[in-house]
């Protein structure tokens, strides 16, 4: 099937990023969100494009074309007219499976489904669907339009044709596909979580402060963002959830550091709460004027 219109389930950072990326290269996109999720999505996508405009990465007319390719809905029935479904909701088994089961009933039988989970198995999710051969796992790294590598994992029943079609789609998005075995945490989330967790342990043990750990790692490895800023952007609640999932599977080497638990408990969830390891401005930039109070860090 020629993929021309993509349905994306979930308008969080990941869903919006995939929508912007796909629309930028010419796909029509339908962004689905339950509740108020879609209220901010158009504005967030426009803000993201405005940042590119400010850096001359696109023109005003290109921006208008990209925005015009994205439609928004809160009605899953609209999925009847898409050629590909990408699930991009929170990493929760029953949430994802329930949503995909509903989509399964609404979409034409040859539509491929993509699962974006970092910790859930494609084979497990596929069990609840009438199209287990058409389900593939993709792990995108936010910001999706910028990061050009994607991990692809497939389930026991995923067909070769489905894998080829998804590879082609990802390559069209301008990204490199790397195949990995379906395993909790895949490669990137597992390695990243270890880095974030170890950094947090070091801060807790007083080896160095948040700024110092961030700076040493970021500058030594030429990272665009250090591990703590990455964690803040992904959401510390998400990071903690991943750690707990991995701890359950692989044991205590993934045991979350007390600092991360403390941050999540006190609402320091990262950019979305305007505070996590760092404080953030309204525009989501690190607030360099902010000073940590007390002995949190």
């Amino acid at each position: 099937m020629e993929i021309r219109r993509i349905g994306i389930l979930g308008s969080g950072r990941l869903g919006r990023g995939i929508a912007e990326n796909a629309a930028s290269i010419g796909y029509d996109v339908l962004l689905f969100s339950q509740g108020a999720g879609n209220n901010n999505a158009p504005h967030s996508i426009e803000l993201s494009l405005n940042k590119k405009l400010a850096k001359w990465a696109l023109t005003e007319s290109e921006k208008r074309v990209i925005l015009s390719r994205i439609d928004y809905t809160s009605d899953l029935k609209d999925l009847a007219n898409v050629d590909l479904v990408i699930e991009a909701t929170i990493d929760h088994f029953y949430t994802k499976q329930e949503l995909l089961r509903t989509a399964d009933k609404l979409c034409p039988p040859d539509v491929i489904f993509i699962l974006t989970s970092a910790t859930l198995s494609v084979s497990d999710i596929a069990r609840g669907l009438s199209r287990p051969d058409l389900l593939v796992g993709l792990h995108f790294i936010p910001p999706v339009p910028k990061i050009n590598v994607v991990e692809l994992s497939h389930g026991h029943q995923t067909s070769e044709d489905t894998i080829r079609a998804v590879e082609k789609f990802v390559e069209k998005l301008g990204k490199k596909v790397i195949h990995v075995k379906e395993s909790p945490g895949l490669v990137n989330p597992r390695a990243l979580i270890t880095l974030i967790n170890e950094g947090a342990y070091m801060v807790d043990e007083g080896v160095a402060g948040i700024e110092a750990v961030e700076s040493i790692l970021k500058e030594s490895w030429s990272m665009e963002q250090g591990p703590f800023e990455m964690a803040d952007r992904m959401g510390l609640d998400t990071i903690l959830h991943w750690m707990e999932q991995l701890q359950e599977k692989f044991g205590d080497r993934y045991a979350p550091s007390p600092l991360i638990r403390r941050f999540v408990r006190t609402g320091r969830l990262g950019v979305k709460a305007k505070i996590g390891f760092f404080a953030y401005t309204q525009d989501g930039l690190i607030d360099k004027t902010w000073q940590e109070q007390g002995d949190q860090a």
Binding site: K52, K55, W56, A57, L58, T59
Partner: peptide, 16 residues
């Protein structure tokens, strides 16, 4: 100075 990528620079020189 402007924190541009190669793609940003190319777009700036060709389109802006």
């Amino acid at each position: 100075k402007e924190d541009l990528t190669m793609a940003d620079l190319s777009s700036m020189l060709n389109k802006h």
